[in-house]
Amino acid sequence: MEVKDIRIRNMKYEDFNDNEYLENYVNELKENGVNVFVGTFSDIINWGRSNSVWPLTFATSCCGIEFMCVGAARADFARFGWEVTRNSPRQADVIFVCGTIVHKMAPVLKRLYDQMAEPKYVIAVGSCAIGGGPFKKSYHVLKGVDEIIPVDVYVPGCPPRPEAMLYGMMQLSRKIKVQNFFALSEKSVKHKSEK
């Protein structure tokens, strides 16, 4: 599959940063023998998934306020179909880790992630979620959420602007579009049998 086919409306392929990440991602899938099957069915599923990503309402600190701004009138993430914020992790597709994760919160976040249904994605918002931010030297702060859960997109900033979060969302959409439904399901079957 040509990665350049991954289109986001009103944004050119060249305008995105980190395109090589997606290209490498697809190549890696191919090399590892995962059949990147470009069927119409797969395309339709990916189209549906990438355009309907429902976030979990989860915010620990400052970035949560900017996340609210993304939902409000000015930035309006409803345009991308993301506005159905679910309060129950079972129904959410993506978790925006908005804010610092401290030691006491870490198991809670991990449990929330475990409670979400597949396919699930994680966006680390703000420098605290990425690497501890200004509190890196503290005795009670996690140095990045990727220590406990896998992260798909990092959105830097302290706190990031709403536009930055929208950009992060678009990047996640692109990533979902190159994923393969059938390959994923095979993987999860394997995972289950290993258990």
């Binding site: 599923i45 189209w47 549906g48 355009n51 309006d76 159905v84």
Partner: peptide, 21 residues
């Protein structure tokens, strides 16, 4: 706000995407 606008004209296929998802 504007509401769904990315899927099809005026986002009319938004709920179809939701259903597929």
């Amino acid at each position: 706000r504007i509401g769904p606008s990315r899927t099809g004209k005026w986002g009319v296929f938004q709920t179809v995407a939701d259903m597929i998802k």
